[in-house]
Design a protein around this nucleic acid. Structure first.
Length: 867
RNA sequence: GCCCGGGUGGCGAAAUGGCAGACGCAAGGGACUUAAAAUCCCUUGGCCGAAAGGCCGUGCGGGUUCGAGUCCCGCCUCGGGCACCA
């Protein structure tokens, strides 16, 4: 029978709240060690919590509770990333203010998180939409502005007419996938100069304790490449190109400009003008994505102009092609078709000359060879290896004034404005006399105006442009009329610095007090989903570095250690296929669109119960028809698939402790893993067994097995083994094996005729980070008046764990043949002797010469025999 | 195409180069019960064998080692990320 989890959980949640058990005081004893453990705060969506949230949140909560018991000052806060598009869209539909919608969503999320017993310091709760918070987001923006890191730019942006909003390049894919259309349109935008920090953002990754793949993704995103800029004369003009392979200059047989390149107009000859113009118009209509995705075949147009190759003074034709991107490098390239895959493709298609300048290793075709080699057809440089050639030619170019070494980055400046209502207003004014003027810091925050209609204006102006009274204001510099900036900031803004505000959430004088910042930063552990691998984490690092330069923070990086929890999928599903007549079709004949790939006939996918299946080879087949394969897969949880698990339901039926424990028991934190309702029942049974160790279920009275007796040595050993394993595993965040160790202890304890209370106290303490409600209840039933939250973490005693006699496996030629029992401290000679005498091994040793005797202390004996 | 991760029983998973499959689920058997649920006990990688026991087994093929799930080389496959970045 399940224990009364609802009662117990409600009782302890109320207790923690009332006693502010998890309050981290504003002035902690700073001589003690600290642990700042942070969750990625959620966007409070209308759907409420899903089971992915408690996965990371439980993982951090276990550490927070553990370190508190180890006497460490723990900071474990929670808040809300509460600006966001869904609330705005809902507001447009219903006319309700996004603030009201957001507040109610936050209430739901808070209730759900509190129901799970997380030990957050709720006095530090913040929401990015709070005006007191917005004030400091705007303040940080002003620092960026004052440092010249924010600028206005007329940019072709990704405009979605459905959303009436501009999207960052990085967001386009996401919204397209949801069925929204996105097109290109030039618009005035605020842009942040993140590129100015590219080098530091790249270099400082090295010191971070982050998953290697995340660091690599950031490195790729920043995309540093070393090369040279080279000037090509073109009549009276000069075209500058960037290349990572200046050593291939002698093989540059033509040149390509991006369609947007301003020189195109000037250089195009009369005969080519019409073709070039048509090509540019076509290119302008396409988004970056369409250009890349649809451009399987290279396209381009000759401009009629010729440039001069600076190394050999040869004239080379200049083309326009959209495989050259305006946003990277100089928007122009020298094409070396022999040694660049793209140029090779292009040159082949348009019959342009291909000249070898790099000699590959013997046996490799030079056409399309892109790696390093030895220079050929390169005049005085023939015979040089690539690396050396690069150095020499770069020096020569610099000396001739025709080029210079150059480092380029893929990273672009950050398009920072949105044409939306529900975001932070920019603290900027436009004054006819003074230009762009920052709102004085003492006038922050700039609040959003009250409005009835949250849509953009019909002419594409942001919604704030409708608030004419709000827009009209006076210039603080000259006193003349000024207009407020009507763009708002993106959702990333608030999440860029929230980890700082938790340190000092109600400070009205400063973003954070310096002594608090110095004590608590950096975040010691940051846990969240890998979907934020690049954007959020890169933007936050960028702001942090700016604040470092401003003297607001004293660490170079915000998040010292990062862990990504793996996604939780829905339950395993077995899918079979039937044709129109209802006959089974084996899964290997079904394609992604549920069509029979042999006949093109439409198939119906049906779920097959596990009991009707058997394993065959790599996959599963129908029991009744073993020639019919089915697909076994767990899918991402989604409303459309109907496999979403609601945490509320789990808590209601099994309790919060079961949910917490199950999510930690499923497998390694970082791994993707499918949900299993049976698994929840399993850990729930374990918690019930724990309860029954203490309580007689029939009567509700303390279990009659509880005794004041001295624990036996075997009992102590069981307890201390669990303490040791749980302690180690918590520190490694290997919670599944920690839970397994506690299960082993309980399985053993169940069999004992009496249960010394002295064993149960420490056990409850090691259980408490995982199942805090049940642990608190049992702790109080053991007679303690106070919460266990600050009880010292139990220590284990190696002496108790030490066994007098151990079992050692005996192998012959590496195969296990028997076991011997020996005194733990027996000398090697005795153990070898015992192994040689081992009866099970005797037949494998008889009459054979023993060539080698290997003893691995306490682990293994291996006897190597001849033949 | 490039860069990361994974691949171990029917399932989720364990295993500092040293007893493969701990722990949990499922399944089978038993106890308790009028019965069921709940609970408790036992069995459970495959093959051969009445048993004792033996052989095989960590995606595939090689290698290093007394000994490889673990290390090295070459593949297959699934998942994620990036993708005309000159």
């Amino acid at each position: 029978m399940a224990y009364p989890h609802s009662e117990i959980e409600a009782k302890w949640q109320a207790h923690w709240k009332q006693h502010k058990t998890f309050r981290t005081p504003d002035n902690v004893d700073q001589s003690r060690p600290k642990f700042y453990v942070l969750d990625m705060f959620p966007y409070p969506s209308g759907d409420g919590l899903h089971v992915g949230h408690p996965e990371g949140y439980t993982a951090t909560d276990i550490l927070a509770r553990y370190y508190r018991m180890k006497g460490v000052n723990v900071l474990h806060p929670m808040g809300w990333d509460s600006f966001g598009l869904p609330a705005e869209q809902y507001a447009i539909k219903t006319g309700k203010h996004p603030r009201i919608i957001t507040a109610s969503n936050i209430d739901t999320f808070r209730r759900q998180l509190q129901m799970l017993g997380f030990s957050y310091d709720w006095d530090r709760e913040i929401a990015t939409t709070d005006e007191a918070y917005v004030r400091w987001t705007q303040w940080i923006f002003l620092q960026l502005f004052k440092r010249g890191l924010a600028y206005e730019s007329e940019m072709p942006v990704n405009w979605s007419p459905d959303l009436c909003a501009v999207l960052a390049n990085e967001e386009v894919e996401e919204w397209r996938a949801k069925g929204f259309t996105v097109e290109r349109r030039p618009m005035r935008q605020w842009v942040l100069k993140i590129t100015q920090y590219a080098e530091r953002l790249l270099a400082d990754l090295d010191g971070l304790d982050w998953p290697e793949n995340i660091k690599e993704m950031q490195r790729n995103w920043i995309g540093r490449s070393e090369g040279a800029e080279v000037d090509f004369a073109l009549g009276t003009e000069t075209v500058r190109v960037f290349t990572t392979r200046p050593d291939t200059l002698f093989g540059a047989t033509y040149m390509v400009l991006a369609p947007e390149h301003p020189l195109v107009d000037k250089i195009t000859t009369a005969e080519q003008r019409a073709a070039v113009q048509a090509y540019r118009v076509a290119a302008a209509g396409k988004s970056d994505l369409e250009r890349t995705e649809l451009a399987k075949e290279k396209t381009g147009v000759f401009t009629g102009a010729y440039a001069v190759n600076p190394v050999n003074n040869q004239p080379i034709p200049v083309w326009v092609a959209d495989y050259v991107l305006w946003g990277y490098g100089t928007g122009a390239i020298m094409a070396v078709p022999a040694h660049d895959t793209r140029d090779f493709e292009f040159a082949t298609k348009f019959n342009l000359p291909i000249v070898q300048v790099v000699e590959p290793p013997a046996g490799v075709d030079w056409r399309g060879y892109v790696d390093d080699g030895i220079a050929v057809n390169s005049g005085p440089y023939n015979g040089l290896p690539t690396a050396e050639f690069k150095k020499q030619i770069t020096a020569w170019l610099a000396q001739q004034g025709k080029g210079a070494a150059k480092v380029n980055y893929k990273l672009r400046d950050w398009l920072f404005s949105r044409q939306r209502f529900w975001g932070e207003p920019f603290p900027l004014l436009h004054c006819a006399n003074c230009g762009v003027v920052p709102v004085p810091e003492d006038q922050l925050p700039v609040r959003l105006p009250e409005m009835k209609d949250y849509r953009p204006t019909p002419d594409g102006q942001p919604p704030l442009a409708r608030a004419t009274d709000w827009v009209q204001t006076t210039c603080p510099t000259c006193g003349g009329p000024a207009r407020r900036e009507t763009n708002t900031m993106p959702q990333w803004a608030g999440s860029c610095w929230y980890y700082l505000r938790y340190l000092d959430p109600r400070n009205e004088q400063a973003l954070v007090a310096p002594d608090k910042e110095k004590y608590w930063l950096p975040v010691d552990l940051y846990v969240g989903g890998a979907e934020h691998a690049v954007l959020h984490l890169l933007y936050a690092r960028f702001w942090h570095k700016v604040l470092y330069d401003c003297g607001v923070v004293s660490t170079k990086e915000p998040f010292q250690r990062l862990v990504n929890q793996g996604m939780i999928l829905g339950e395993m599903e077995y899918t079979g296929y039937r044709d129109a007549a209802g006959a089974w079709v084996s899964a290997e004949f079904a394609d992604d669109n549920n069509t029979d790939r042999r006949t093109r006939a439409k198939l119906t996918a049906v779920r097959v119960p596990e009991a009707e299946l058997q394993k065959k080879g790599e996959g599963f087949v129908l029991l009744a028809q073993p020639e019919i394969r089915v697909v076994a897969r767990a899918h991402k949880m989604s409303k459309s698939r109907g496999n979403v698990i609601n945490p509320d339901d789990i808590v209601k039926e099994y309790g919060a402790d079961s949910l917490r424990l199950y999510e930690m028991f499923m497998g390694p934190l970082t791994q993707v893993k499918p949900w299993s309702m049976k698994g929840v029942e399993g850990v729930s049974r374990f918690l019930s067994r724990v309860y029954r160790l203490f309580v007689d279920e029939e009567t509700g009275a303390p279990s009659p097995k509880l005794s004041a007796a001295e624990p036996t040595r075997a009992q102590l050993r069981a307890l201390h083994a669990a303490i040791k394993k749980v302690s180690h595993d918590i520190e490694k965040m290997e919670y599944n094996t920690a839970i397994s160790a506690m299960m082993i202890f309980v399985n053993e304890a169940q069999g004992w005729p009496e249960l010394p209370r002295a064993l149960l106290g420490p056990f409850v303490l090691i259980l408490s980070p995982f199942a805090p409600h049940l642990a608190e209840e049992m702790w109080s039933r053991l007679g303690h008046a106070e919460s266990l939250a600050y009880e010292p973490w139990p220590a284990w005693d190696e002496d108790i764990l030490r066994e007098d006699e151990i079992e050692v496996p005996v192998q012959v030629n590496g195969k296990l043949r028997g076991r011997i029992r020996v005194a733990a401290d027996a000398p090697e000679a005795d153990i070898i002797a015992a192994a040689l005498a081992c009866p099970e091994a005797a037949s494998f040793l008889a009459g054979k010469e023993i060539k080698k005797k290997i003893y691995i202390p306490r682990r293994m004996v291996n006897l190597v025999v001849a033949g």
